[in-house]
Design a protein around this nucleic acid. Structure first.
Lengths: 134, 134
DNA sequence: TAATATTTTTATAATGATTCTAATAATGGG
DNA sequence: CCCATTATTAGAATCATTATAAAAATATTA
């Protein structure tokens, strides 16, 4: 592991995580001011290829990187903010229905985060499974 | 609904679905040769804003559009191909754990599709929850 | 219906995210 | 230490998407 790969791996594995390439780039620049964006992409792709980190995508925003330890996410429908949750492990039920042949799964729960709820106001109705957010 | 909006809605709601903007554009061009890509984006964004269609994103590939009727997906880890599945409805268990405050959820199960399995060969080991694919 | 306002489409430029390429630098093994 | 391999850099290229402003289509209403 090169110094960049190592440090990027660390950054992605920080508890807050869910970092974009751009964010990683900026954090990394604090330690290595001369680093270049392509290096961040290169190393992230390598780490992802080797399954040392996870990649998560939310519609319409740049990919983010996450630690590999299995957990789920709630995603703000409005601003895209990600937060970790630990929902029941679906591995067994999925195996039962799907067969044994799968690698992993990704469960995202969409909601509107408190900040956006405030901004959008009570008037604006957001549709979905449940119609109200309080 | 304009003719474009109507036709795009139809295209997205076709059983195969999971179409990218580019695919929709090409299908649409068969009916309306003079249509322009921006129109496809405009109409898709409108349809999505109005929650008449769904948007799904797979890490590293352009967003795709899907019919609104709730279903889950299996995603090829290698080529990104999407296929519909109907896994158990998680609405109730999620409500129980998360509270009532969510809009929808998205469950993706990653695997390697038969075509890619062939291409990658038996030698290549793909890690995940289950380590083998047969 | 003509005149006007509103919405949609078009054409194209601009932006943002990511990959590609080729040159240079760093690293590791004999 | 030399050579081969791998990583980094710089910058161009590509791809996806949004923005903008003009033109066209549609709806509104006097």
């Amino acid at each position: 592991m090169t110094k960049y790969e190592k440090r990027i791996y660390e950054i992605v594995n920080q508890s807050s995580s869910h970092v974009t390439v751009e964010q990683i780039y900026h954090i990394l620049k604090a330690d290595f001011p001369s680093v270049v964006l392509a290096t961040v992409y290169n190393n992230l792709n390598k780490l992802y290829r080797d399954r040392l980190i996870n990649k998560i995508s939310v519609e319409g925003m740049p990919d983010r990187y996450d630690r590999i330890v299995k957990h789920d996410h709630i995603v703000c429908q409005n601003c895209g903010k990600l937060t970790d949750i630990q929902f029941a492990d679906l591995t067994e039920p999925l195996k039962k229905q799907f067969g044994a042949d799968f690698l992993s799964y990704d469960l995202k729960v969409f909601y509107v985060c408190p900040d956006c709820r405030k901004k959008l106001g009570a008037d604006k109705n957001i549709h979905g499974y449940t119609n109200r957010m309080d």
